[in-house]
């Protein structure tokens, strides 16, 4: 229902940002994400930045598998509860 992709903010002019993904650029509105800064990766949906992408959110496959095989659950696995 909601196609959205990450892109990098490369310029900001008021409530309008310019984002880049794979060399493709487009203007996006920052009205829904006024805290975005140049250099942030943001999730873009329908021409709007919706959220800052937290790049430290690691691939959790290994941790998940360890958990499924009996290792104690870690705090990270709870996500951001």
């Amino acid at each position: 229902m909601c196609l959205a992709v990450p892109a990098k903010v490369i310029a900001i002019d008021g409530a309008v940002g310019r984002v880049e993904r794979a060399g493709i650029e487009r203007e996006v509105s920052l009205m829904l994400l006024p805290e975005a800064k140049v250099g942030d990766y943001v999730l873009v949906h329908a021409g709007f930045a919706m959220q800052i992408v937290d790049e430290t959110d690691a691939d959790e496959t290994d941790a998940l598998l360890a958990e499924m095989h009996g290792a104690p659950r870690t705090v990270e696995l709870e996500g951001l509860h």
Binding site: M31, L32, L33, P34, L43, M50, Q51, I52, V53, D54, E55, D57, E60, L77, E78, G79, L80, H81
Partner: peptide, 20 residues
């Protein structure tokens, strides 16, 4: 309820979007 999309999904989501 678990969160497998922590890179962009927070407990409280995007309050600015909801307010608008």
């Amino acid at each position: 309820v678990e969160n497998e999309y922590g890179s962009v999904v927070h407990e409280d989501g995007n309050p600015t979007s909801r307010a608008i």
